[in-house]
Design a protein around this nucleic acid. Structure first.
Lengths: 327, 327
DNA sequence: TTGAAAGCGGTACCAT
DNA sequence: ATGGTACCGCTTTCAA
């Protein structure tokens, strides 16, 4: 069923049918009605490829993320999906791991797919060559980073205020005398860096110099994180408190402390479902992903209407206090 | 940059260029080399829309799931994504909630998008009208259900052997004298039903009649689940052991028991990251999603090559024993 | 082995 | 308000 057959049945030209499809005002109500009726009864739907070919758009956006099965990213996808739906955009999803080069390759791939925009969730671009690739793509297609940061023309970034929140947490720790606190992280992403800066600021405010010993590489699983903390304990460097860059790492710390019968403040990030499951309940940071995704979608709207949005946006995050580090 | 410009630069016709693009054998090595070289230096990539228009395919599959942020589904997506990538298919993702009608609508939507296949993750089709819609679509496009079951021509299903595994667990419980066990569930999906059947079988084997009291609706959050178990305790119906249809519900049970200082066997499903985080560690069922996704992808392969795969597949699941219900 | 030309199913401009 | 028609970029016969 195509536009020609509809035109023939309705006794009009394909141009008129096309006008009806596109809600053109210059069609008489009578004609429109007749055409619509025939479309209806024949279950006609315009061919998306033909439309794409002419308009160079299929109302499709590409989304590149490191790992769908990360609950933080999964939540972002869920919310972004909802935002896109209200705008009649579909989502082409790529879960590509944390390799930068792979991510860059996918950017190019999506460009060739003629997507209308590209969203990057939690990607890092520390490598210069890859960042330049990103810049080139961004000249042609709107690129919007969620919880990632690259300062380049055409690249728009929405982040949460990790730095401020991490600072607030570490400052609270210091004021309670827990000055020997550490940050558990799995890899030096932009997000980690922002949180680290917050810690550094707070320590400085409390007259403490931020050094390597405040930063602990903890792997990316519960087990590796627990092992890292246990090693600290074994070495006699048991920290007063722990701020982890994810709830999972924080869970590892809780486990390690519990094993040694120790009571220590632990705070995580992302406020995932884990927090309520753990004992003690995990104090964590809710990054208000809904805000970030809505902002990201709005940026897309503006870009596709050739408006110039601001390049950087920050969404507030919130500390959700639980027993692992009470307010 | 299109096929015409390449043809002109190479001094050949567009037909020849097209042949090179499609690896046609009837192009002289010389010509092919020259065309390829020009494509290379001009960074030419065929227009996906034009190609889609002719071939009626963009090497795209639609994936409909209830909720990306469910960790079980997120894992499935991650693995399915990997399978699709090796086959050069892209994934159009829809997270539509658990409403059947909405799911059915999206089937139709994807049909109009001319996707090459549709995957459904964890969907239920209890409503007859919606199931019929599914059947109609399945006549035209391969429909593959992961962890869902509908017996209809053109609908292919990959499930894990929930029934057998649930039976094994409940049988173990009974043999240990924990005959007063209950199943915690959140909604009567196909998966729930399969697990329920397993429980029923095992109880029957142990001379116990399966009744309503073995089935406890526990909502879909940690809190609702804990509340449901606490209510049982308050009513003096504290179960000997609990089998929950998800780890989250199981976590709720653990929490409720802990609050009352009770020691009870608890088993979950999906073997999510939660299991290791909980205290005691949660015994859970690993459904080997990798197997299911690989099978699903293979079914797609066969269907797209007009072969006739079996309609129903079962992947083995495995009990991962932890402290909450030791082996 | 190669080229010419007819689609694929729309959109949009130019007439009328 | 409507129709005719030239695209969009590729695939695929049919001839040469």
């Amino acid at each position: 069923m195509n536009i020609y057959q509809i035109a023939e049945k309705a006794g009009v030209s394909i141009a008129t049918v096309s006008r009806v499809l596109n809600d053109s005002p210059s069609v008489s109500p009578k004609t429109r009605e007749k055409v619509l009726q025939i479309m209806e009864q024949d279950h006609y739907h315009p061919n998306v490829f033909a439309r794409g070919l002419m308009l160079d758009s299929m109302k499709l956006v590409g989304v590149i993320c490191t790992d769908v099965s990360d609950s933080f990213i999964a939540e972002a996808l869920s919310l972004l999906q909802a935002q896109l739906r209200t705008r009649s955009y579909d989502m082409l999803l790529f879960s590509v791991g944390s390799n930068q080069e792979t991510t860059a390759k996918h950017l190019r791939y999506l460009q060739n797919k003629h997507v209308d925009a590209i969203f990057l969730i939690g990607s890092t671009f520390s490598d210069t060559a890859d960042r330049q690739k990103l810049c080139r793509i961004a000249q042609e297609i709107p690129v919007i980073m969620i919880n990632g940061f690259v300062d380049a023309p055409g690249v728009y970034c929405v982040c949460s205020d990790d730095t401020a929140t991490a600072a607030r947490i570490v400052d609270t720790m210091c004021r309670r005398g827990l000055t020997d606190c550490v940050m558990l992280y799995d890899s030096m992403t932009q997000g980690t860096r922002r949180k680290m800066q917050g810690m550094q600021q707070a320590l400085a405010q409390n007259g403490i110099v931020f050094t390597d010993r405040h930063l602990v590489l903890a792997g990316e699983t519960l087990q590796t994180s627990a092992a890292a903390v246990e090693q600290l304990i074994a070495e006699g460097h048991c920290p007063d408190a722990v701020l982890a860059t994810s709830d999972l790492l924080a869970a590892g710390a809780i486990k390690a402390f519990a094993k040694h019968g120790l009571q220590r403040g632990v705070v995580g990030f992302d406020n995932t479902v884990l927090c309520d499951c753990l004992v003690p309940g995990l104090t964590s940071v809710d990054q208000h992903m809904d805000c970030m995704c809505e902002t990201a979608a709005r940026i897309m709207d503006q870009l596709l209407q050739n408006q110039q949005p601001k390049q950087f946006f920050t969404c507030p995050s919130e500390i959700i206090w639980r027993e692992s580090f009470p307010e």
